[in-house]
Design a protein around this nucleic acid. Structure first.
Length: 219
DNA sequence: ATCCCGAGGG
DNA sequence: CCCTCTGGAT
């Protein structure tokens, strides 16, 4: 079997993406992403818990602390009380307060449209910054390679077997996918990785890209 | 029992 | 690189 050319790989990637889009849409979670500050807060809260849980809590948060300045001045115990069901609530409460404080003192009560500046905010790491750039600003700066993206990229062979670091996998993906699609990859692949392309016991027999996946049935 | 759309710190 | 922080869903 001849080695796949880059053009063929891009074509296959485009087909994968088409199908992902059918199943998961833009992948934009139901978090409120119209306001960059609120989106950032919601994404920080969403670490290690479901969007549904976050969406239950954020309305209470906005009600009690309508403006970033209110959150910046808040008593962390009050924040903790509201976000407790999400888990990691002490750390998250401290992050929210710090995030709001920096937002107010350095960014006029909003959040910067810059991947590196975003990561200076307490609680905002690479993954969250990427999410904010994509969802709030529609200005993707790359793909955040977490365990899901790493695993899926390898199984679909969108990167070579020697791509053994997140940076190498990202570099490969950026070449395979056009920039407009970087917006969706993280969101869609995370859902896909949970539902089909699981780390253990992948559901290849039911997977909607199995016919164009080189690893189908081999994981 | 085990896993989760992470970040920060040692 | 490894650990911790926490609750909820399955």
């Amino acid at each position: 079997m001849p080695r796949e050319t880059m053009a063929q790989k891009r074509e296959r990637a485009a087909e994968v993406e088409r199908r992902m889009f059918e199943v998961y849409g833009e992948g934009a979670c139901s978090l409120d992403y119209t306001d960059p500050f609120r989106l950032t807060v919601a994404v920080v809260l969403s670490a290690q818990c479901t969007d549904a849980a976050v969406n239950k809590v954020t309305p209470l948060l906005w009600e009690r602390f309508p403006e970033p300045a209110d959150l910046a001045a808040a008593d962390t115990a009050q924040i903790e009380e509201i976000i407790r069901p999400l888990g990691f609530y002490r750390a998250k409460a401290a992050k929210l307060k710090g995030l709001a404080q920096m937002s107010v003192s350095e960014f006029g009560g909003t959040v910067p449209q810059d991947i590196d500046e975003l990561q200076r905010l307490p609680g905002v790491g690479r993954k969250t910054a990427n999410c904010v750039m994509c969802q709030a600003f529609r200005d993707p700066q790359g793909i955040a390679v977490d365990t899901h993206v790493y695993r899926i990229a390898h199984r679909l062979k969108f990167c070579g077997p020697s791509a053994n670091t997140p940076d190498k996998v990202e570099a490969a993906l950026l070449k395979v996918y056009p920039r407009e699609q970087w917006l969706y990859i993280n969101h869609q692949w995370v859902h896909f990785g949970r539902e089909y392309c699981r780390a253990r016991n992948p559901r290849c027999s039911e997977c909607f890209v199995a016919d164009i996946c080189p690893s189908a049935g081999k994981c």
